[in-house]
Amino acid sequence: MDYTLLIVQTLNGVQLGLLLFLVASGLTLVFGILDFVNLAHGSIYMVGAFICASLTFVVGNFLLAILIALPLTAAVGYGIERLLARHLYARDHLDHVLGTFGLILVIDTSVHLIWGPEGFAVPLPAWLDGQVEIFTGVVIPTYRLLIIGVGLAVAGGLYWLVNFTRLGMLIRAGASNRVMVSALGIDIQWLFALVFALGAMLAGLAGMLISPITEASISMGGEIIITAFVVIIIGGIGSMKGAFFAALIIGLIDTLGRSFLDDIFKLFMSSDAAETSAPAISSMLIYILMAVILAVRPQGLFPPKVR
């Protein structure tokens, strides 16, 4: 096996995992505290990418565009919370799924109306566009390192926010007993809206970060949301720690599976059979993993303490 490729692909897997974590953390946060299933979370991720792409052309700087786009995406999340999500909290999960399914249609078509059907390529500043040699012979794009750095920083920031701040205390309290929190005089509606906007901002950030690599496109939301759901199911819905580890596991397994599964299969089957079965198996690998984990632990790897 090619060890340079292995290291590069491992880093790619970590990068994918961290992006997945950004999306999944918002999902799991919203579910854990609001008990709300938001299918449209992937659409917010997509909207973030488009806002950032447009701003990059307006202000001429990708990083500055991200800084402006983040509060805008949070505002989109706040709008969704006020107009739709808030009215569905008291309903069952089926209504959440259908309501946000409708919201996906609305958001995706609106983006189509505003930005057109084509994807939107986002140029990187020159200093991010190069490559760096991290070990002898192992060269990876600078920008991927930046994504890994940002992903880890956000994960650390969320850990600090949830565990060591007053807001985090309210979030944890809200997750374990909503009624008690509001009985203690906390404006629970304000807390819910804030959490929703925070989740939207995290998803938007993920969309912005990936757009220079894949370009912003309407279909990107639908592609990531399923994987993000798999992440939070495996991690245990509502658990931030679970989302983090599951995202990394999924990112690594998906990336490494796609590049090395045919080599592994060739160890014990004919090369023909390996080449036909490996792509099929590798695209299903994360679902197989999910099935195995849920068969053993139906509540996921790190189920949150029940309310």
Partner: peptide, 19 residues
């Protein structure tokens, strides 16, 4: 599983067939 886990796992299995 039950509740929201059931919704999401059936969706994931559907996508498994899709892929």
């Amino acid at each position: 599983t039950k509740g929201v886990y059931f919704i999401m796992i059936t969706m994931a299995f559907g996508m498994m067939a899709y892929y």
